[in-house]
């Protein structure tokens, strides 16, 4: 693994191709759980955790089972199944071994099961051509599992970054005297729009 590629993977996943504000995946938790910073951060950590594990498991299953058998078209059903099962198992394991962590992110875990950002990252990392373009690899065949997991981790961190910024903004906005008709959700949508525009600058440079 090349150091420069690792760096560009980080920057790409965190800022340029941020899952929420550039790829528009995972919008529901982004708007739904961003009312206060604490729960937003909990959600972000849970998503990061699940995304990394998803990449770690779905990538080898796709590459070493589905591709040799010629069953690439089964990817979505297999991925959904695997993600749901992983999340279920993680939840049970957390409940047993770390009640503190379970209390902190336990309620967000079941919400992530059907999150499009998680399925999105699993679908994205198996597409070697597109991934090579995204993270700056010269050749699509250089793509491997290390990059996939790294991309999953930083995509999750990018999600955390976006949702924490959003919740901070919403906390500030909630204290301002705002026109009655814009109060609550409408102003949150406008705030989300400004965050997306701010992140668009990364795509231009």
């Amino acid at each position: 693994m090349d150091f420069l590629v690792i760096l560009s993977t980080m920057i790409s996943a965190l800022f340029i191709n941020n899952f929420v504000v550039s790829q528009f995946l995972g919008i529901c938790p982004f708007l739904g759980v961003s009312k206060d910073t604490k729960s937003a951060f909990g959600m972000g950590v849970a998503v990061t955790f699940v995304m990394t594990l998803t990449c770690l498991i779905t990538y080898p299953i796709y590459t070493y089972i589905l591709v040799p058998l010629g069953l690439e078209f089964l990817e979505i059903i297999v991925f959904i199944f695997i993600i749901a099962a992983i999340v279920q198992m993680i939840e049970m394991a957390l409940k047993k071994f770390s009640p503190t962590l379970y209390n902190a992110m336990g309620i967000y875990l079941p919400l992530i099961t059907t999150n499009c950002a998680v399925l999105g990252v699993a679908e994205l990392v198996i597409d070697h051509e597109q991934m090579a373009g995204l993270i700056g690899l010269a050749n699509a065949s250089q793509m491997n599992m290390g990059y996939a997991v790294l991309y999953g981790l930083f995509a999750g961190l990018g999600f955390t970054l976006a949702i924490v910024i959003m919740s901070g903004l919403r906390e500030k906005v909630a204290r301002l005297p705002i026109n009655k008709h814009l109060k609550g959700f409408p102003i949150a949508m406008i705030a989300a729009c400004f965050i997306a525009m701010a992140f668009f600058v990364f795509a231009l440079i």
């Binding site: 089972i65 589905l66 058998l69 069953l71 089964l74 059903i77 297999v78 199944f81 695997i82 099962a85 279920q88 198992m89 049970m92």
Partner: peptide
Amino acid sequence: LLVAVITVVFALLI
């Protein structure tokens, strides 16, 4: 076969 195997394996795991 694949779907059946994955289902059974994950069900047992859970």
